[in-house]
């Protein structure tokens, strides 16, 4: 049975806020401890959400990308005071550049994994619910664009199955025949995609999407549980922001590596960020425990 994710039953605005903050921090902080926290939390959550599929993505998609990023940086960036060895063109490979590359790859990897979680949780109806009123045209466009790739690949499968059944399979015949069949499938799908976009936009318009006074049915209610979660979010985010602003969580890579000394406030900051990153997992575990308790009582 597929696990039900508790976090995605929260109010969309809470979920959106969570992702905006966690992505913002991950993209702009190069601090190794913060990045490690973010990366590991993202991976754990992605695996919880999608299981073996997430493991596959992380091992064969994210990991090689991360390694490439980490290796690329010291090859092109030679700043830093600690020279490890020299390249054949005379430029140095420095410890600082190597470590910066590792940090950058951690950032890159965790952003990708967080986005895979985002795509799983922030479905387009949630997105439209949040932004449909404020920016109707843009949010429709965005949700269509975000949905495009999965929808397109699904349609390709459908079209090629249909073509196969009338004997134009991409798997049979010589290369020329296969090529023609493949191009036909692609052409049909692209035509469908273009038409589908126009039809979607038209049908939304004919239903009065974006007009003044139009209401939309939604199941979302901002209840007590959302309030509590939001409160914890805000507190954790504030503590973390305080330790960054005060310079207690701080790192510099060039020209020499400087990091904050571990003090009370910096450790508090790490813990706040750890709590923040893992809130969805904590919610899930709490829900599982409740469920089991209820089960045993019956």
């Amino acid at each position: 049975m597929k696990k039900r994710d508790t976090f995605s039953t929260l109010h969309p605005s809470v979920e959106m806020l969570y992702f905006v903050w966690v992505l913002f921090i991950t993209m702009f902080m190069m601090h190794p401890i913060v990045l490690a926290t973010s990366l590991i939390s993202a991976m754990v959550y992605a695996i919880y959400l999608k299981g073996a599929k997430a493991v596959k993505l992380q091992l064969f998609g994210v990991l090689p990308l991360m390694i490439i990023t980490a290796v690329m940086n010291p090859l092109f960036n030679h700043a830093g005071v600690t020279t490890l060895f020299y390249l054949s063109n005379g430029n140095p490979i420095t410890l600082e550049a190597v470590l910066y590359g590792v940090a950058a790859s951690g950032m890159f990897g965790s952003v990708i994994v967080w986005f895979s979680c985002y795509n799983h949780i922030m479905t387009s109806d949630k997105f439209i619910y949040l932004f449909g009123r404020i920016i109707p045209a843009l949010s429709l466009l965005l949700s269509m664009a975000l949905r495009f790739v999965p929808k397109f690949s699904h349609q390709i499968k459908e079209v090629s199955k249909a073509q196969e059944s009338i004997g134009r399979s991409v798997k049979d015949g010589n290369i020329m025949k296969r090529l023609i069949a493949g191009v036909r499938v692609l052409s049909i799908t692209i035509t469908w995609a273009l038409e589908n976009a126009v039809v979607t936009a038209d049908s939304m318009k004919s239903r009065g999407y974006g007009l003044k006074g139009r209401t939309a049915y939604s199941l979302y209610k901002f209840d007590k549980r959302d309030k509590m979660v939001l409160l914890i979010f805000v507190i954790a985010a504030l503590i973390f922001a305080a330790s960054i602003i005060s310079g207690k969580i701080y790192v510099r890579y060039y020209p020499s590596i400087r990091m904050n000394a571990e003090g009370a406030l910096s450790i508090l900051g790490y813990l706040a960020f750890l709590l923040f990153c893992n809130l969805p997992m904590i919610l899930n575990i709490m829900e599982d425990i409740t469920w089991r308790r209820l089960e045993s009582k019956i």
């Binding site: 503590i239 005060s246 310079g247 701080y250």
Partner: peptide, 22 residues
């Protein structure tokens, strides 16, 4: 909530008074 917020403010104020040692 109010107590927590004021505590946070205090922590921030203490934190901001000491800058990084660069």
């Amino acid at each position: 909530f109010i107590i927590l917020l004021s505590l946070l403010m205090a922590v921030m104020a203490v934190g901001c008074s000491t800058a990084a040692n660069d």
